[in-house]
């Protein structure tokens, strides 16, 4: 690894001031687990890293908003999230996904903000946060703005964050009671590998009709994204195996998978079909068991 300038500001304002809108070799670092891999392989050679670990206040903590949703500071570690009783009761789908996300050492160090800002399509939480309709608050010298998690990812390892912009918190809205939610992670090589396909689903059922549906796919594609055709196949249809199958076919048709060491594009397309269907089925079973 090449050496670099490491600065450790104590406030968010100082941190933002140390970033540079013109210089991509200046970056924020939180836990650093993902960035370190890039630096070790020299895919990324920073001139300056702005460490956020001494920044207290708004980047920290999990708290309930006035509307019953959760505000999660960007520097919250994935382990803190995993062990949070608030998260487990509000979004069990997230707590469950965290248990299989990398390993405990990584979760102890990696942060939610870094998990999102890295823009890696294989991350587990982005598709889930997309279906939960979460948004991030981002800060720069120009002020603060909101970005929906579904608009955060612009391409392979690319986000819509400006070079000098930081995620400060993630806001997850409260979810209606009885909503069907599931994340299906498929790893083709070993259980702790990065996923070949991640499929997150969210839908509400009233009088045996799906009234609203969100389906997001990650890992198979260049970025986590909602799949409109699958959502359309579900909406106003009954939650049956046949409808789920149709929606899964629509998802497989719509995605543009990319080949990588987790699978070829054509294999991933088939795995999208299988795992979107399974996610839809499991979300419903969970609800009928009273656990959702």
């Amino acid at each position: 690894m090449r050496s670099f300038d490491l600065v450790e500001p104590a406030t968010l304002d100082e941190a933002v001031a140390l970033l540079d809108s013109q210089d991509k070799s200046v970056r924020a670092i939180a836990g650093g687990t993902a960035l370190m891999l890039m630096m070790k392989t020299r895919l990324f050679q920073p001139t300056r890293l702005v460490s956020l670990r001494r920044v207290n206040g708004e980047l920290r903590g999990i708290r309930m908003n006035g509307d019953g949703g959760l505000r999660i500071g960007a520097m919250t570690s994935l382990a803190e999230l995993e062990y949070s009783p608030m998260l487990a009761s509000a979004y069990p789908v997230m707590s469950q996904a965290l248990r299989t996300l990398s390993n405990i050492r990584i979760r102890n160090v990696a942060t939610l903000g870094g998990h999102l800002a890295h823009g890696d399509p294989h991350m587990d939480l982005p598709p889930i946060l997309i279906t939960l309709d979460a948004k991030v608050s981002a800060a720069s010298k120009r002020g603060q703005r909101w970005i929906g998690v579904s608009d955060l990812f612009a391409g392979y390892y690319q986000t819509s964050l400006a070079t000098d912009e930081l995620i400060t918190a993630v806001h997850v809205p409260s979810q209606p009671l009885g909503v069907c939610c599931w994340y299906e992670k498929f790893t083709a090589r070993s259980a702790d590998d990065w996923p070949t396909v991640g499929a997150a689903v969210w839908y509400s059922v009233h009088s045996n009709v799906i009234t609203e549906a969100r389906v997001a796919v990650s890992a198979a594609t260049d970025r986590p994204m909602r799949i409109a055709a699958a959502e359309a196949a579900l909406t106003n249809a009954p939650p049956t195996a046949q409808v789920f199958s149709k929606a899964a076919d629509a998802a497989a048709d719509e995605v543009q998978p990319i080949s990588d060491l987790h699978g070829s594009a054509s294999y991933k397309r088939e795995m999208v079909r299988v795992h979107v269907r399974r996610a839809l089925e499991r979300a419903l079973n969970l609800r009928s068991n009273g656990a959702g």
């Binding site: 990584i106 102890n108 160090v109």
Partner: peptide, 20 residues
């Protein structure tokens, strides 16, 4: 950070020393 051979505890929690 996959194998755990470089594990150390920092403030009581395990980290991968090769990525820290």
């Amino acid at each position: 950070g996959l194998c755990g051979c470089c594990t150390a505890l920092v403030n009581g929690t395990a980290v991968s020393g090769c990525l820290y």
